[in-house]
Nucleic acid binder design. Structure first.
Length: 170
DNA sequence: ATCGTCATATGAA
DNA sequence: TTCATATGACGAT
């Protein structure tokens, strides 16, 4: 079942010591997060940035900085996963339960969803994750401990794991 | 250790 | 239905 298309009301920068991330918001919450280098639309801070979005963005900024510092965010903004399929949403939700500093394999996630053979599909779902970092798909490694893949680039995956004190096998 | 090959789930075209 | 995956297991070398 597939909800209505997402309309991302606004796009805001998230300044960090690792570069400027870009967050996008719909009326339901954070709907996307992208890694630096990302260019933001130069001009518009929409004159009317609702209190709601400002609050969400403040939470996003704090959460992103927490993760980059290897800490667990205390509070997250609501997510708008508009386009996800049921399976993808279940994968993403499961990723959410993976604690900071721990890793899982694609097969682990598949088993947790009671679909032990779906490891490969889990990888695909991870690739479709619209909010990496806060939905921590970087904590999913291959079963042999190797790095696997990452939508934002393997350099980022390695960097994020390093922030959390995890070292994948060479 | 590396490589090829197969089995398999899911999603998009 | 066919194709592509951010997999995993196994066997040959």
């Amino acid at each position: 079942m597939k909800p209505a298309a997402k309309s991302c009301a606004c796009t805001l920068p998230v300044e960090t010591g690792h570069g400027v991330f870009v967050a996008r918001y719909s009326e339901h919450g954070l709907c996307a997060l992208s890694f630096p280098p990302a260019k933001l639309p130069k001009r518009s801070q929409p004159p009317a940035l609702s209190d709601q979005i400002r609050n969400w963005h403040a939470l996003t900024c704090k959460a992103v900085k927490a993760v980059l510092a290897g800490r667990t965010p205390l509070e997250l903004p609501p997510f708008d996963l508009g386009e996800g399929t049921d399976f993808q949403r279940r994968v993403w939700e499961e990723l959410t339960w993976t604690p900071t500093g721990e890793t899982r394999s694609y097969a682990d996630i598949a088993r947790a969803l009671r679909r032990p053979k779906a490891a490969r599909a889990v990888g695909s779902a991870c690739g479709a994750n619209p909010i990496p970092l806060l939905i921590p798909c970087h904590r999913v490694l291959a079963a042999n401990g190797q790095i696997g893949g990452f939508s934002g680039g393997l350099n980022w995956k390695r960097r994020l794991l390093e922030c959390e004190g995890v070292t994948p096998v060479r």
